[in-house]
């Protein structure tokens, strides 16, 4: 994660800590069977509960009978009016999806909603966007919805993976499990949550010795296919790595405190030096690298200690 945080944040002029509003819309579609109805509604409710404590959050959940196309259009229209460019919008889709070679559809009561229809609604929302589609066949959504700087996470690699998915279970878990915050900065980004859920999903099938019927992908460049692993080489994950989904600590409060700005700047400088050092790691001897790293980490720890006072 670090490679996408300090250095790239500075490069991109953004910060995970900026105080702006986040609009969360969770839609739990039709289950078809009681077991799935309960499962989908349960996950949606879990998102709802977890996000409740998030600062500056506007949370809406449309579940079961409420998840009609009219309600979705109305809510997204409302968000389009309220949200500003610096705000964030997160759409969680939980349920069954279908794909017919051309178009992905998300199953809801009444007429299903297609990816194209969702795209029209999304394009009207000025905020930064993350679409987390955890439905079956969700891979089919990427070619239709992808835009530069829009993060798209799907439970499946294509529209042809049509079995019910477990990815949503682990995406919810990512927002609960502190270990999902891999860089321990008290912010779980879309990329961190994706990595956590993708890893757990793969392990689920591996442990049961079952052929995997879902292969989660992430795409945030606006072109090409989604990837399983976001890396510097494939260029994926830069936007997702700075897209905060959940704050788990005091980072926001510190960021908003004017008295701490100098220390905060110092901290970001050290973090940048650490990132630069890591880039040079392969060309350095191990003792040299570890020595320099240790020195910077001690400096960073002291700065953080001062920030926390």
């Amino acid at each position: 994660m670090r490679i996408f945080s300090a250095a790239l944040l500075l490069l991109l002029g953004g910060s995970l800590l900026q105080a702006a509003d986040t609009y969360y819309l969770t839609i739990a579609g039709l289950g078809g069977e009681q077991e799935y109805e309960q499962r989908f509604a349960g996950w949606a409710s879990d998102f709802d509960k977890i996000l409740k404590g998030e600062p500056n959050a506007h949370i809406t959940t449309l579940s079961g009978a409420q998840a009609t196309r009219a309600n979705i259009e109305a809510k997204m229209g409302e968000i389009a009016k309220q949200a500003k460019a610096e705000d964030s919008f997160v759409l969680f889709l939980i349920g069954h999806g279908t794909y017919d070679e051309n178009e992905y559809k998300f199953n809801i009561p009444g007429p299903d909603i297609s990816a194209t229809q969702l795209g029209v609604l999304l394009d009207k929302i000025p905020a930064k966007q993350a679409i987390i589609d955890m439905s079956s066949a969700s891979g089919g959504i990427t070619p239709i919805l992808q835009r530069p700087k829009r993060v798209i996470v799907t439970a499946t690699k294509s529209g042809t993976e049509k079995n019910a998915t477990v990815f949503a279970r682990y995406f919810v878990e990512a927002l609960r499990d502190p270990s999902a915050d891999a860089d321990k900065n008290e912010i779980i980004t879309v990329l961190e949550a994706f990595r956590y859920a993708e890893g757990k999903t793969a392990k689920f099938y591996d442990e049961l010795k079952r052929l995997s019927t879902e292969h989660p992908l992430i795409e945030d460049t606006g072109k090409g296919d989604g990837v399983k692993s976001a890396t510097v080489e494939n260029g994926q994950g830069i936007v997702a790595g700075r897209f905060a989904l959940l704050h788990t600590g005091s980072a926001v409060a510190i960021a908003n405190n004017p008295e701490k700005q100098k220390l905060l700047k110092q901290k970001e400088d050290i973090e940048q030096q650490i990132d630069e050092l890591k880039y040079r790691k392969a060309s350095m001897s191990v003792p040299d690298y570890r020595g320099q790293l240790s020195k910077l980490l001690v400096e960073l720890a002291k700065t953080q200690e001062a920030l926390d006072k």
Partner: peptide, 13 residues
């Protein structure tokens, strides 16, 4: 892996 990991920072110090 996580430069901002506070408990680890304390231990390092």
């Amino acid at each position: 892996a996580a430069p901002g990991f506070k408990p680890a920072q304390k231990l390092l110090l």
